[in-house]
């Protein structure tokens, strides 16, 4: 029921809850026992290889395909249950590789989907403006570039002021400028209390932008948490890049000798040091004691990509 859907004030309360969700196609276990709780107001990333089950899970969360077992609730209501209309009016969905109708103009496209969603048609024009397509409102989608189609698809998802957004690979085909403005829009929506679930295969792009992520492989959620949580869980080594002149290489090596450093490599004008996460602060302290000899220091944390491969290998 609509009344049972949490209001934006319930930030942090579980909004989308999946319990023991499975989708089997014969012997193929596309989704194989997924438990998730996505909290109200968060920006949640779902990552995984192609075929890991992300899109299938997405479609089950929308109630597009039934689960073999388990259930998925949004605001307490079963997504494919009797209240599916109320649930869907609170949800915006951007499918992967969105396909819209070539013969309609941008504005007509939004009118169509506004009508289907029960949103006022007057929302269409401002929504087009929000995604930067006001200038192309009266052009047919046939003439739109890939990026413009993607933005129109995003606009469609924003109709009816949804409380939840499901965005499947939303930045495909966008240029860097458009990606930036896309995430700015997401941040603004988040400040308005909108919960967003996003998939992306460009891990570098989402690692700084999501609150929490779940890593899916072979139909299962291997890990979930903030990017930092996952780094700690997977316990990958860090890399230091220490800029020193060549004659100080040995000094650095000596200063670090008593520490649990896994590798030291000498390069032209810097030394690369690999160590475990728990030795990070000790290494920084030891380097700080070398006074003026260290000209620069950069720490490379394992990226989300490293973390991802750490979990999926």
């Amino acid at each position: 029921m609509e009344s049972s859907l949490p209001t934006p004030n319930d930030a942090g309360a579980p909004l989308i809850v999946a319990q023991g969700v499975r989708k089997h196609y014969g012997n193929i276990h596309a989704v194989d026992g997924v438990d998730l709780d996505i909290r109200s107001g968060e920006l949640f990333g779902l990552i995984g290889h192609n075929g890991a089950g992300k899109s299938t899970l997405f479609k089950m969360m929308l109630g597009l395909i039934p689960a073999t077992s388990g259930d998925i609730r949004i605001g307490g209501a079963l997504v494919a249950g009797r209240d599916f209309r109320a649930v869907r009016r609170t949800v915006g969905y951007l499918p992967e590789n969105v396909v819209l109708y070539d013969n309609l103009t941008g504005l007509e496209t939004l009118w169509l989907f506004a009508k289907l969603k029960g949103a006022p048609p007057a929302e269409a024009a401002p929504t087009l403006e929000r995604v930067g397509l006001a200038h192309a409102a009266k052009r047919r989608v046939r003439e739109y570039s890939k990026g413009m189609r993607q933005r129109l698809g995003f606009a469609q998802a924003l109709l009816g002021k949804p409380r939840i957004l499901f965005l499947d690979e939303p930045t495909t085909g966008l240029d860097p400028e458009a990606i930036r403005s896309f995430y700015a829009t997401l941040r603004q929506l988040r400040s308005e209390g909108v919960t967003t679930v996003i998939t992306s295969h460009i891990l570098a792009e989402i690692q700084e932008r999501v609150d929490r992520i779940a890593i899916m492989t072979a139909g299962k959620v291997q890990a979930r948490g903030t990017v930092q949580d996952l780094r700690e869980q997977v316990d990958l080594p860090l890399w230091f890049s220490v800029r020193v002149s060549k004659e100080d290489f040995e000094t650095v090596r000596a200063a670090l000798s008593h520490l649990q450093v896994e590798a030291i490599e000498a390069h032209d004008d810097h030394v690369k040091v690999r160590c475990r996460r728990d030795a990070k602060m000790a290494v920084i302290e030891a380097l700080a004691r070398l006074d003026g000899r260290v000209r620069d220091l950069t720490v490379r944390e394992p990226s989300l990509e490293d973390v991802f491969f750490g979990f999926s290998d």
């Binding site: 479609k59 009016r89 396909v99 698809g153 469609q156």
Partner: peptide, 11 residues
């Protein structure tokens, strides 16, 4: 064409 999922995600 791939437009069915979007239609079916409507109420």
């Amino acid at each position: 064409r791939g437009s069915l999922d979007l239609l079916l995600s409507m109420p």
